[in-house]
Computed example of a mutant assay.
Amino acid sequence: MSRTRLFFLTLLAMIAFAGNSLLCRLALKHTSIDPANFTNIRIISGALALGLIIRMRDGAHSVAGNWPSALALFIYAAGFSYAYLSLSAATGALILFGTVQATMIGYGLWTGERLGTRQSAGLICAFSGLAALLLPGLSTPSLPGSLLMLSAGVAWGVYSLRGKGAGDPIHVSAGNFLRAASLAEALSVVTLPSGSLDRSGFWYAVFSGALASGVGYAIWYTALRGLTAAIAAVVQLSVPILTAAGGIIFLDEAITLRLMIASTAILGGMALVIIDNKPAKC
């Protein structure tokens, strides 16, 4: 794969990931769709898009995946949607991706990896930034929204860890999306009395599931073939920045000094941990 193609595939994937936050926030802020219906439509659309990609690529209908991963995917998607009832696009993306990286790093430590001095300093810096973002104050993001996005980040971290070495990632993702669709449908049924849906919200959810999730993941898995693990982790830290830019342009969101400082600490600290990625086993 040429460097130019690799660059554009990676950029498209990061834009797609940022697009998930922007589309969800747009839908919940400017349409009447509720989080449960958004989650349901998003997951179903993602499953259909991934199934179509498999059909076009391999000429086959078979999918893989498993229920524990599907459950993690559902918890991520539902927590993500409900969190964006009260969080700005930029704040939600920062909490999400910071938590995903922290979950995966924490798993590495639990399984015996050890951090060097610079990695430890980076981890402390990142957690300090997250704490500063969530401490009480005039510009503190919603606590329920923050907790929901933290749970979504942990779930996505678990989903990512379970996906390592699980087989063809697109086949696995398609199967997980298909299984998670039944859970999302159950959520929609349970919340039916308070549910709502309109045409604009429906299409935002479809675009989030089919394009930003299904096609976005397929592009990302293609790009991953040319990226090292450390670089792949670092480039994902660009998503909150892209989301913040999109929030300013499309949602008229303001970037506070608190968010800027927290972003610098969280993303800078995580980058230091990942770039200096030479852990030693016990």
Score class of each variant (00 low, 15 high):
L133R: 01
L133F: 02
L134S: 04
P136Y: 03
G137I: 03
G137L: 08
G137D: 10
L138Q: 13
S139F: 12
T140L: 11
T140D: 11
S142G: 00
S142I: 05
L143I: 15
S146P: 00
L147H: 04
L147R: 03
L147S: 03
M149N: 01
M149S: 06
A152C: 02
G153I: 03
G153N: 02
G153Q: 01
V154Y: 01
V154D: 02
V154W: 01
A155K: 01
A155Q: 00
A155G: 00
W156A: 05
G157S: 02
G157Q: 01
V158D: 03
V158E: 05
V158N: 04
Y159L: 12
S160R: 02
S160G: 05
S160C: 04
L161N: 07
R162L: 15
G163I: 08
G165Y: 01
G165V: 05
A166M: 07
A166C: 07
A166D: 09
G167Y: 00
G167S: 02
D168W: 00
D168Q: 07
I170Q: 07
I170M: 08
H171D: 11
H171P: 03
V172R: 00
S173I: 10
A174C: 08
A174E: 03
A174H: 00
A174S: 09
A174W: 00
L178D: 09
R179Q: 11
R179N: 09
A180M: 00
A180R: 00
A181F: 07
A181D: 09
S182F: 14
S182C: 14
S182I: 15
S182V: 15
S182Q: 11
S182M: 14
A184Q: 05
A184E: 03
E185C: 15
A186G: 11
A186V: 14
L187W: 08
V190S: 10
T191Y: 12
L192S: 14
P193I: 11
S194R: 13
G195L: 12
G195W: 08
G195F: 09
S196W: 07
L197K: 06
L197Q: 12
L197M: 13
L197F: 10
D198G: 05
F202H: 05
W203L: 13
A205I: 05
F207K: 04
S208K: 06
G209K: 01
A210M: 02
L211G: 10
L211A: 13
A212N: 10
A212P: 04
A212W: 07
A212Y: 06
S213F: 06
G214V: 05
V215C: 09
V215R: 02
Y217S: 11
Y221Q: 12
T222C: 13
T222L: 14
L224A: 13
G226E: 06
L227M: 08
T228W: 03
T228V: 10
A229R: 12
